[in-house]
């Protein structure tokens, strides 16, 4: 049983380890390789639907990975590489859109919705708790409120 659980955990973890898509490692230094993978994971493959260039073998993704690698070797910082991509492909190339005037609604929406839901729930609970105790008896069975 223990073995089975161990195997299960191992398999469950497998997809998260993320096999590198390149045939070979781009860098021998693991620190550089992980920086390379991190940069790739933040860049959208523009010809795929909702994939990063780390996930795709589309030829454009291969080219962009090559560009990332080359710029890293040239000593560019992460920010310089990102800015380079954004200057050419726009903010769409970033897998995580930045918070700015255009996207603030997108980023704020979940919080607004949760807060709105809480307010509605609160108002319903308040109203119900103000009802006279005997009121429930008058509600027909199965009816809501």
């Amino acid at each position: 049983m223990k073995r089975f659980i161990a195997l299960f955990l191992l398999l469950a973890y497998l997809p998260a380890t993320g096999w590198a898509i390149d045939q070979q490692l781009a860098f021998e230094d693991p620190a550089w390789q992980s920086r390379y993978e991190e940069l790739n994971a933040g860049l959208r493959c523009l010809v795929c639907q909702n994939q990063t260039i780390a996930d795709s073998n589309a030829s454009l993704a291969v080219d962009l990975r090559g560009q990332v690698k080359e710029m890293m070797i040239a000593g560019k910082t992460d920010k310089e590489i990102l800015d380079y991509m954004v200057a050419r492909y726009g903010n769409f190339v970033r897998f995580q859109p930045p918070v700015n005037n255009e996207t603030i609604f997108l980023w704020a929406a979940p919080a607004v919705m949760v807060l709105g839901g809480l307010l509605i729930a609160l108002s319903i609970v308040r109203r119900r708790s103000n009802l006279p105790v005997g009121d429930e008896d008058e509600t027909p069975v199965g009816g809501d409120a």
Binding site: V47, S59, L60, R88
Partner: peptide, 12 residues
């Protein structure tokens, strides 16, 4: 080969 296209922001 691909370099100029990247600079033009070409994706297809």
């Amino acid at each position: 080969e691909g370099r100029a296209a990247i600079n033009f922001g070409v994706y297809g």
